[in-house]
Design a protein around this nucleic acid. Structure first.
Lengths: 233, 233
DNA sequence: TGTGACGAATAAGTCTGACTTTTTATGGCT
DNA sequence: AGCCATAAAAAGTCAGACTTATTCGTCACA
């Protein structure tokens, strides 16, 4: 999924990025470019390029005569897909998963409402196809097949919304869904009610019923929140 | 607001970034590092660092024997605050503003609902203070004073939600609000109804009434959508 | 005793030039 | 026409020397 091995600096990032986002270096920690270059056995130029990238994510800040200081979490570019991936891989995973699920619960219903207005015929067809695929894989422990169609379904919704900001969350949502199936233990077949909801969302979008698409999607995301015990009693 | 002059590579970014996000180089255009270094009168090392940053934003991709190719808009990290700023400065401004306003309409109501549950006493006080500041500056063309309190209000809401992803949108929302006052012509005093809504949101949060806070905030964002003529007739 | 200025130490920043590696294009061959 | 060897092009990497900004310690002076 990621793009490993795009040069030496990429390898450095794949090590340093996860380490920082996992909190291995507490905020305020000071690293030195030369020392890091030695540690990773790369030249300073390569190390500097890696530091620049981390700096653009606001994971670190580089200051003369001081060094490379690790930034507090509040400064991080938490929407950077690379940062999200690193955090999902590491110790911060549960917390990150909750944040993203709350984000989904805000975005996806609105996106579905917009999709009902803007989706092309092709996108509607794709959506229906995904929903049918989910139904077909909803019983008998075919979790992998179910997941593929689930991810595609949500990606189409987000894309069809016509909003570039929503569309860009397709990868993130896919990763959250994948995580639920792969990491979080999912013994049983998916909730039949959820499957039905997806089919109904596809219907609503096809019929251009924005309000219904939004409300149904809200129910889906509420389910996702409940799975993580995020809800008011 | 931005951080200019963090070295030569920063200057290069301040020129190349806006140029690319403004669409001056069509997707697929190929640049060469050496040529760029000459054009900006910097060394190749500096140029390479700049390219690495642009690459981490997925604005360009660097490939051996080919060069630095400009990526299509769909690949960009549209949530990167730097990218957002560049686009707001350039020709893409109207489009970017609409995207962000739609995003706000999805996020802020949910954030307000969460804020009603999680806001500390201090945050509630701050919120009320902001709302009062808005009222005090709502008449007599005190647009600047109004803006400051408006920005602070929304930032507190997003922070008080307790969700880091929401909190990180504080800067973006502030920039959208500032843009409305500074760039888009805002002749008249703000809509009195909007001012009242803000006061009521502060009330609802203080009382812990999540549903009401969410609904009232939704009304605020609907108003913002209407200002940009984004709505179904 | 406190304060300010000067200077030394330090780590990032910059530049240059040589070399390596990968990928594409070319051109000759079957 | 298809294929393989070769050359060329551009990014990638490295090493070393030099520059510059910032911080910290010291010492003189008030």
């Amino acid at each position: 999924m990621s793009t490993p091995g795009r040069g030496l600096h990429g390898h450095v990032l794949d090590t340093l990025g996860p380490a920082i986002t996992a909190g291995e270096y507490p905020p305020g920690s000071v690293l030195r470019t030369d020392e890091l270059a030695q540690r990773f056995d790369v030249s300073r130029s390569v190390m500097r390029e890696a530091v620049r990238v981390l700096e653009s994510m606001h994971l670190v800040e580089s200051r003369r005569r001081v060094g490379v200081t690790v930034q507090p979490k509040t400064a991080w570019n938490v929407y950077d897909p690379q940062v999200i991936r690193w955090r999902l891989e590491g110790a911060d995973r549960p917390h990150q998963l909750r944040s993203l699920t709350v984000l989904r619960s805000a975005i996806e219903p609105v996106a579905a409402g917009l999709a009902a207005k803007h989706a092309t015929a092709e996108q509607c067809a794709e959506l229906t196809e995904c929903a049918l695929g989910m139904v077909a894989n909803s019983r008998g422990h075919q979790l992998e097949g179910y997941l593929i169609h689930d991810m595609a379904f949500h990606r189409v919704i987000l894309t069809a919304s016509g909003n570039e900001m929503f569309a860009r969350l397709g990868d993130v949502v896919a990763e959250v869904l994948a995580g639920r199936t792969h990491h979080e233990v999912m013994f049983e077949d998916p909730d039949p009610a959820a499957v039905t909801l997806h089919v109904q969302v596809a219907e609503a979008v096809r019929e251009g019923d924005a309000a219904r698409a939004e409300e149904l999607t809200r129910e889906i995301t509420v389910g996702a929140l409940q799975e993580l015990d995020i809800l008011a009693p």
